[in-house]
Design a binder for these strands. Sequence first.
DNA 1: CTGGCACCTGGAGCGCGCTCCAGGTCAAGC
DNA 2: GCTTGACCTGGAGCGCGCTCCAGGTGCCAG
Lengths: 123, 123
Amino acid sequence: MTAYTPSETSRRSGFSIDTLRYYERIGLLSEVDRTPGGQRVFTDDDLGWLGMLRCLRDTGMPINQMCRFAELSRSGDQTIADRVELLRAHAEAVEEQMALLEKQYGHLRDKIRYYERELSGQR
Amino acid sequence: MTAYTPSETSRRSGFSIDTLRYYERIGLLSEVDRTPGGQRVFTDDDLGWLGMLRCLRDTGMPINQMCRFAELSRSGDQTIADRVELLRAHAEAVEEQMALLEKQYGHLRDKIRYYERELSGQR
DNA sequence: CTGGCACCTGGAGCGCGCTCCAGGTCAAGC
DNA sequence: GCTTGACCTGGAGCGCGCTCCAGGTGCCAG
């Protein structure tokens, strides 16, 4: 099990050090290991979990839902069904998000094409 | 040219009345017509423009870029090239956004599948 | 003419997700 | 042992995009 400094962890996870501390504070990251002197030491497990968090954040899950998910994850195997449910609901939201995004992207492309015609017809 | 009340416009555009006022204030919506008594009267043109704004917002364009676009749009035909450039840059950003979203959506689905296997292997 | 609801203005406030700060401590290289 | 840079804590602050509020006016149905 490799150990990582905060800055290394930040580099690998893409979260700033401040954000890592913030996540620990609000319970998204459960009690990170420390050196005798009190500096954080992250593990591969932490990095894996941070990858999960990155996935959820990038797909737009709000922090408080992530906290709920983190809490479930800390509470043992009998919460797996709840976790699946939460993730499935989120996946559905993401599907809607992608559909909307693609639709509006289409409109955007139309607009661009329209302007391009204006531009070429102009001179 | 049909005329629309604020609430009708809100209903049709999906922006709240407060947001419509806010957009006018910051120059996203150029001077909306008024009744003699000072109440706003929106036109079909306004609704069309609001559709454009809706498209840009839904695809994540920040407000200040939208303001720049609005300003260009108000400044006549010689800004069309600039507008195209702005929209094209935005379209590229949207493509990246969609790519990331799809990638993370894939991870999310993987996670769900993983948990489902845990669940079925459990009892 | 009046009641009542929609709308007006300017400005304050809010929720989110960080980000920054002051003032101090830790730890690795010379 | 000392320096120096990374890290610590608790708490304040921030940027975004609205949203709400007080106190007042407009407009239309009955």
